[in-house]
Design a protein around this nucleic acid. Sequence first.
DNA 1: TAGCCAGTATTCCAGTTAGGAAGATTCCGC
DNA 2: GCGGAATCTTCCTAACTGGAATACTGGCTA
Lengths: 187, 187
Amino acid sequence: MTADLSTTSYALLGLLALDPADAPEGLTGYELKQRCDLTMRYYWVSPATSQVYTELARLARLGLVDTTDAPNGRRNTRRYALSDSGRTALLAWLETSEPAFPVLKHPVALRLMFAHMVGPEHVQRWLDTYIAQLEQRTADLRAVREMLGDDPRLRSPATVADWGLAYFANESAVAADVRERGAADEG
Amino acid sequence: MTADLSTTSYALLGLLALDPADAPEGLTGYELKQRCDLTMRYYWVSPATSQVYTELARLARLGLVDTTDAPNGRRNTRRYALSDSGRTALLAWLETSEPAFPVLKHPVALRLMFAHMVGPEHVQRWLDTYIAQLEQRTADLRAVREMLGDDPRLRSPATVADWGLAYFANESAVAADVRERGAADEG
DNA sequence: TAGCCAGTATTCCAGTTAGGAAGATTCCGC
DNA sequence: GCGGAATCTTCCTAACTGGAATACTGGCTA
């Protein structure tokens, strides 16, 4: 019945499902992109702005989102809200399909494959960069996690945030370990 | 001087750099794709066959790989080997550029965001699926790791494999924990 | 010993995704 | 009422995916 959508499509559908209460008219593509950048980026590629609009147009064409045009001065602002069939499609996806295995693009691990080709100082630099980036991301995600608090209605996103923090912590530990062992080889 | 290449281009260049000894003529696109599927997929998207060939054509055009054509029956088989300027470009990339932060596409975490929309049995199912997939991947990667052994020449790939195993172990632990806490909520 | 199937090797295509640039407009502080 | 930040959308190009199509080799078996 419903055409097969990409996971990113369902992700956007899901984001629209998360706040119907405070936004009855739905969200603009711009706002949706901001939501993606705020939370989704920790466990999914935050789609490019152009892709957000492309997906929304597709979802509207399929009747999975309702659109409302509101004149905004001389210009038109279009809001997208989850439709009934959109909610049905989202639920069907959650209930009947199996999650695929995660895909990782890990530039540090990739470079590490070729570590023997360059001096150890470069490997140390890669790891230092990565560890610093991890600290920044951890701080950002911790802020998100604290925003979510103990509210039982936000338990699902909170669980995901905790998962992300555990992932970052593990990456930090492994990176630090590899760095140390590399340094030890020099001694 | 050298045009900017995608990370995937450098990954292929790196794979070609890994075994020049036993393959002086280089590898075919098909063999390269197999190498990707065997090891690269644990920390990078294994590129589609069509992309492997597209990239190799680009690298050949840029002079970063040398090609050798060998007639194979009525047809031609082309082998690709790292050229001197290819090696230089790879080293320059490793030595002068910083690794970007990893990108993750985690379908389980994505679904978990919407856990409250469906019955807990579905969440259990997602996590069970994921835990089973992790076991399979862990076994596969462990086999790769054992193939690499203690050989000091293979220390770099071995480190990456260990990193992957630590990542899988952490994911398994977190998934099991989330699963248990979800089940506890039912009690 | 012909037939078949698995494996090797490459190309083509249509569609999706990524990333960036460019634009038009509104909002807000000064 | 000016200027810059924020809002909102579109367009373009390149990268990438997945699948199908094509062609040949070699081994097994009936």
